[in-house]
């Protein structure tokens, strides 16, 4: 155990007082800049605010007057949230149960593609083998396969296994109840990989080549380089992809509907909220509150990981 671990340059941590964009902004009439950014921020926020305000208004008010009238005629109720959280249906008292399902689905569905894609992206970027560029392009192009078209074959893979020329190559999975989570993880991982490889490859391939060279000269193997050099450098980039994948899985309805089913053993929050909209169509008052219940977690995750997120994307550009 004498191989020296190459030290990671810490240049990225240097504090930069002025950036190019900062200069641009400063030189521009900064009042105009502030004004424009405020206008954009308001335009982007108002629709959500409208929904948020509406979620506290009585059903009849929502349907007959605009949400902005609350400023002149404030009328608020918690009934919509009560209905969504505790519901009229016997099963809705278990919203917490669906919440746990969402967590149980989301966590592995984020971790697996993250790890697999990082390994693959490293191989595609730094291991020399024939056809790697074509392989990368092929994986990249797979992003276009609409997941709707993958539902039936994948479901058949789970429920009947794989048979080639009459020979059962892989058995059916035969999962019941909460075991069905495994199917959902599998499906989400498949669907996430092309984008994950694409994104991580972008960062990993931009790591400084001399760093890798130095390590190779020191006799480090690929797994070692991956673990000791690449992983620490791209951890923030992983956080970035992790957030996107988290948002995608958390908000997904279609994949869960097919592979998890609709019961409270496995169905995530989104499936439940879609049902809440009522069996005969949409009702504003439930939708408004329901939308906010489902937004809360992604929002917390984003806000708490925002720091890593920004740093993560920094790491990709160490080369400058």
């Amino acid at each position: 155990m004498t191989t020296a671990t190459p030290t990671v340059p810490t240049g990225a941590q240097a504090i930069r007082k002025s950036t190019a964009a900062g200069r641009v902004r400063k030189r521009l009439n900064s009042r105009t800049a502030t004004l424009v950014s405020i206008v954009i921020a308001i335009a982007w926020t108002v629709p959500t605010v409208g929904l948020f305000v509406s979620s506290f208004r009585p059903e009849n008010e929502i349907k007959t007057t605009g949400w902005w009238t609350v400023f002149s005629n404030p009328q608020f109720t918690l009934e919509n949230y009560q209905e969504v959280l505790f519901g009229r249906s016997s099963s809705s008292g278990q919203l917490a149960s669906y919440f746990i399902n969402s967590l149980a689905i989301t966590i592995p569905s984020v971790l697996f593609p993250l790890a697999f894609a990082a390994l693959a992206a490293y191989a595609l970027a730094w291991i020399n083998f024939r056809g790697r560029d074509w392989l990368y392009i092929a994986i990249f192009a797979l992003q276009i396969v609409p997941l709707q078209m993958a539902l039936v074959p994948l479901l058949r893979f789970f429920s009947t296994g794989v048979t080639i020329a009459g020979v059962q190559v892989l058995p059916a999975w035969d999962l019941v109840d909460e075991q069905k989570f495994a199917q959902v993880w599998f499906a989400h991982t498949c669907f996430a990989l092309p984008f994950a490889v694409f994104l991580l490859h972008n960062f990993i391939s931009q790591l400084p080549a001399d760093l890798m060279e130095a390590a190779r000269v020191d006799g480090a193997t690929h797994p070692r380089i991956f673990r000791t050099i690449v992983l620490p450098l791209i951890t923030p980039a992983l956080a970035a992809f992790g957030i996107f994948q988290f948002l995608w899985v958390w908000n997904d309805l279609l994949v869960a509907l097919i592979f998890a089913g609709g019961g409270n053993e496995t169905a995530p929050l989104t499936v439940r909220l879609a049902e809440m909209a009522g069996s005969r169509g949409n009702e504003w008052q439930r939708l408004t509150a329901g939308a906010f219940v489902s937004i809360v977690v992604p929002l917390i995750v984003f806000l708490s990981l925002q720091r890593y997120f920004v740093r993560g994307l920094l790491a990709g550009s160490v080369k400058g």
């Binding site: 894609a117 693959a120 191989a123 498949c190």
Partner: peptide, 25 residues
């Protein structure tokens, strides 16, 4: 054995992609 390393690094991804996306495509 660069190629062999690459294969192992890529194995999980390639298997999953083959089942989940290439087959369906």
């Amino acid at each position: 054995q660069e190629g062999l390393f690459a294969l192992f690094f890529l194995l999980p991804t390639l298997l999953l992609l083959a089942v989940g996306l290439v087959g369906p495509a």
